[in-house]
């Protein structure tokens, strides 16, 4: 199964190689979706973890016991397409490619499965048509 999680490191432990440990100890396929880590500061990783349920559970427990906070990627982005003017401003900030605009019709295409909930579209949209909400 695939699970997206947000991993938050306390200051001081952001230097450790957590992804290496997850791969080595639990044989988990790890994709880093987003990383904001500086030594000496709080760090944040958005990870996609691919393994069976048991190993995933063990890995998450291990991370929690190691002093990092692990929470499911709790929010999703919703978009009011009915009010959209198709200006394209949101696509400018969407580096995951979830939002795109192109020929021939130049209308916004939103693919939620590609969204990494970076939330840049929320501020980029001049009509404020994007919102984040809790998933599940």
């Amino acid at each position: 199964m695939v699970k997206k999680v947000v991993v938050t490191f306390p200051a001081g432990s952001a230097g450790r190689s957590l992804t290496y440990e997850l791969i080595k100890k639990f044989d988990i396929m790890v994709s880093i979706i987003k990383a904001d880590i500086d030594a000496g500061r709080n760090g944040k990783l958005v990870l996609e973890l691919d393994a069976d349920r048991e190993r995933l559970g063990q890995a998450i427990d291990y991370m929690k016991q190691s002093g990092v906070d692990v929470s499911p990627l709790e929010s999703k982005i919703t978009y009011d397409s009915d009010r959209c003017i198709n200006c394209g401003a949101c696509t400018s900030s969407c580096l995951s490619g979830a939002l795109s605009i192109q020929a021939p019709d130049w209308k916004i295409v939103f693919q939620p499965d590609k969204c990494i909930v970076c939330k840049l579209c929320i501020t980029a949209c001049p009509l404020k048509l994007f919102h984040s909400s809790f998933e599940d």
Partner: peptide, 11 residues
């Protein structure tokens, strides 16, 4: 560099 419009061509 990724380019994006700010004015709506569709409109």
């Amino acid at each position: 560099i990724h380019t994006a419009p700010l004015s709506s061509l569709a409109k």
